[in-house]
Design a protein around this nucleic acid. Sequence first.
DNA 1: TGTTAGCACTCATCAGCTTCGAGTGCTAAC
DNA 2: GTTAGCACTCGAAGCTGATGAGTGCTAACA
Lengths: 341, 341
Amino acid sequence: MQLDERKYLILQAIIDDYIVTAMPVGSRTISRKSGVGFSPATIRNEMSDLEELGYLAQPHTSAGRVPSNKAYRLYVDHLLKTVKLTSDERERMHEHLVDKSKRVDGVIRSAADVLSDATKYTSVIVAPKLGTLRIKHVQLVPVAEKTALLIIVTNAGIVKDAVIRVPGGLSADELYSISRMLTEKLAEKPLEAVRQEFAELLRNNAENRRLLGEALQVIEKKLESEDQADVVIGGSANLLGYPEYSDVNKARSFLAVLESKDTIRRVLSRDGSMEVTIRIGPENQVPALNDCSIVTASYRVGDHSNGTLGIIGPTRMNYNRVISVLDFMGRALSDVLSEYK
Amino acid sequence: MQLDERKYLILQAIIDDYIVTAMPVGSRTISRKSGVGFSPATIRNEMSDLEELGYLAQPHTSAGRVPSNKAYRLYVDHLLKTVKLTSDERERMHEHLVDKSKRVDGVIRSAADVLSDATKYTSVIVAPKLGTLRIKHVQLVPVAEKTALLIIVTNAGIVKDAVIRVPGGLSADELYSISRMLTEKLAEKPLEAVRQEFAELLRNNAENRRLLGEALQVIEKKLESEDQADVVIGGSANLLGYPEYSDVNKARSFLAVLESKDTIRRVLSRDGSMEVTIRIGPENQVPALNDCSIVTASYRVGDHSNGTLGIIGPTRMNYNRVISVLDFMGRALSDVLSEYK
DNA sequence: TGTTAGCACTCATCAGCTTCGAGTGCTAAC
DNA sequence: GTTAGCACTCGAAGCTGATGAGTGCTAACA
């Protein structure tokens, strides 16, 4: 049995309806829809075929039909109609990103909020891996008698900071000259190479050995924890509004998954392309999210490093809209962030 | 009618039981408890009295009794037995706070997580008002060709940063000397006074007018938005585990309240004392939280500025434990943060 | 041959009913 | 003053039948 024109039409109508109502769709409902000019009986026959082909499922005998994951796959592959965001909406979204006084991580945070706001689903953004970045500037800023803020600026404009202990009695000027020395030695080095550089610095700088040792330790810790960190989530409570999560336990286990940055990272991992990709239900490898769909896109910071932005929602999510929003935001985010470069 | 010894005993037993089970407590249950040596009938008589006095309520005729807000008030005022945290537990909590490489805001973030972890309720921490702080150090760090990171360190060790545009062609050294000049002019001034200082600087520094103008604007914006920001929440999903929130709509409206930093700020506001305060049900002025209790304590950053840390939970929360945890964390947080000073 | 009207059938949902048991209040005895 | 006994109340849980949305099948129609 093959899918002919009419089957496509009916399947699309069913999915479109189910995305909105979350209720099993009956033949009469489809028949009434403009654009489908057949009687319920005819549609029932087609639905029966579609069920046999694995595109539809029946919760119980006398209920309507529900699209299967296979149906969603077909839907996103062949039946999507790209919807345009209104320019008004684009503007509003863009506006929230461009607060000039925010650092890169602040912009990413805002982007997550904008995403979840625009889609009413849960948004996730993973920052680019630091390892691939190069150091551009290092600076120590005095904070208190024996502490200073170590600031590392990368070529992508990403700023990392950490408080470190410094020997007492170092003046701001002395800290500055140490900063200059550090910048000189470390500039253009990838963050991963910091270790070797520091080792060498430690050998040749007996006087500031303690300070440098501490700085090295801190930087290493930051790099190590990197894989865990820098996952930003927006609108975690958004999904609670959907009937899929009217069961508190389901809601709770979903929220629990969001707490594990590790899982989120895994879920968001994707190949290098900039295209929007869609993973439906079990296509994403995390069992706890098997009744969710995950749509992801990429953004660029600087020249080479890619980050990922994505939306997690029920499999019956509004793919049309989510894709448009992600596509737009991916570009917008890249644009905004490349200004920092 | 007065509350005699036995009524206190029975009320306490009822509340203790209800805190654990969240189910109406019957006379038999109390009678069985060790420490209460009376038959169910006697206890029923007492319960009837307690109900008349407004300390207990009956959901329906044949159900047990439930403590009223008035009962909780009595409970926390007179019946609390202070429980000690095990030293093991104290240590574990303290440990999470003392990552030396974190800035003040990072420590506060961790504290919120520790609080919600230790209590299984939702924790909230409000950072001290910036207005009362004094500037200690100002520094510009080059980020890209035409942007720099403006860093303001206050006397309490709190660091605020913002990205600003700078005229092209300024070298790192030039930025440093401007930083020095700014530090010199602004040191010891309260943040609120920045406006006047900057105005004067603008008059006398024709050459860096653009840079300074931008910096001023950014600082002002930060200060303005201050009242909104710097509210940190931990364990927002924790309450979902309690039967009080098994209704998704209730859960959702609770989570919605947490999103409004403004409301949270209002709820957490308290007088200057360092004591733990408890607001039960409608005693807190936010209608949406009328079936919650809110327990707050203070912590200090630097000499004068106070922040607030608190726990939001159901009115039948485990007050004993929450108070111990808040008391300990208030001190611990003050200790850790005063090291930055 | 494809489409549709008609009809018997299925099954979730809901209202109404009964049963069960936890818990109460009252009374009388200790 | 305390407690045993007992009738009473009322929610929770389970059962029943009515309702209606939806199906599959058959036969008639274009």
